[in-house]
Amino acid sequence: MRVKRIMIVALAAAACCLALVACKSGGKESTAVQQGAQGKPPLRIAYSDWPGWVAWEVGIQKGFFKEAGVNVQFLWFEYAPSMDAFVAGKVDAVAMSNGDTLVNGANGKKGVMILVNDYSNGNDMIVARPGIDSIKALKGKKVALEIGLLEHLMLETALKQNGMKISDVKLINTPTHQTAQTLASGDVDAIAAWQPNSGQALKAVNGAKAIYTSADAPGLIYDTLVVDPQSLADRKEDWQKVVKVWYRIYDYIKDPAHEKEVLDIMSARVNVPPAEYATYMKGTRFLSLAEAKEVFKKGDSLKSLYGSSKNADAFNVANKVYSKPQNVDEYIDPSFTMNVQ
């Protein structure tokens, strides 16, 4: 159920002004929690519509932050405005992908990833018309996607895994929310999109098939909690508590006894039927504490947040999202996750 994860963040003052007001989703206003930690202002955390981030709602509604003694305020945004709010200093942290964290930093607002919620595990798809059953069959064909965004990176990865180059296909720059209708029009041979758009494309064309998904490249897209460095320095103990609460949330949502309650809470946040939301959960690979600790170890492969971020950085530079490579080490602090027992 991915909202638009924009690789190029507009930093214009007008956009920042729009970010001052959290957007509505499904008829619900921003969710705010202000509990515990007497005398301290709340840690302001912007979150948006992706299962790995909607899961924070479970901790909010179950009172986990109050029990942990940390004062937090979760603000519900659309994804792009959440990043704008972080850039404008209106929130202390934001739920953001690792690639977009680099984009923000390259444009002047660095944040530090202290928590990895999940990686996309099937919700992002390359959907092809009938008769195209593999990535190799895309050679010389038209593919609709938003150039420079994460689906562009996924297509490039898929082609590389099949011994092909991006020049082997013709890219048709298309807004993600229009990809399903573009495939249905017959003007292109395939599209790259995330849920619910990818699912809509499958429904729009009889016989259409997902020939590649993010499950074929685990770790290509990590979803994280990104914190302002000053807030991190000033409130280190409180941020440590937030990270610890996340793993309590993880344990709760992975308990089969809580499945119905969790789906009810999360689907209500985004106004989607629980049964439908369950399919989005399957396309999201939530990471256990042990798995997250492995992801935070340095490495060059997609199994490491460092390797994945270096891969995203190379893509961003090659596609002129920004001009100079970033030092990914400056964007990652594994200590908060490593300190959770």
Rank of each mutant, 00 (worst) to 15 (best):
G122K: 08
D118T: 08
G99S: 05
T157Y: 06
Q181C: 02
Y222F: 11
D228M: 08
K142S: 10
K141S: 07
S214A: 04
K209M: 04
K136D: 14
L171Q: 14
L183G: 00
G148Q: 11
I172K: 14
K236D: 04
K90I: 03
G89K: 07
A88G: 15
D223L: 09
K236Y: 11
G89R: 06
D168Y: 08
D189L: 01
K139L: 04
A210I: 07
T157V: 04
V103F: 10
N173K: 12
K170P: 15
S185Y: 01
L153A: 05
A184M: 01
T224Q: 08
V91Q: 10
I114P: 02
D92S: 09
I114W: 00
Y119C: 01
K141M: 08
A193S: 14
A208I: 10
Q178D: 06
I191F: 12
S167C: 10
V205L: 07
K165H: 12
K109E: 01
I114N: 07
L232E: 06
D234H: 06
Y119G: 02
L202Q: 12
K209H: 10
K139G: 14
G111S: 08
P196S: 00
P130L: 01
G99D: 02
A201T: 03
K109L: 06
V127L: 02
A93W: 07
I132T: 14
H152C: 07
G163K: 06
A95I: 11
P196C: 00
K110N: 11
D133L: 03
Y212T: 10
G89Y: 04
S198I: 00
V116L: 00
K209Y: 01
K142I: 01
I166L: 15
L155M: 10
N123W: 07
A106R: 11
D228L: 08
N117P: 15
L153D: 06
N121E: 02
D187L: 07
S120K: 07
Y212L: 04
G108M: 03
A95K: 13
A210S: 14
K109C: 06
A208D: 12
K142D: 10
M164C: 10
V143R: 13
E151S: 12
N104E: 05
D124Y: 05
S167N: 13
G148P: 15
G105A: 05
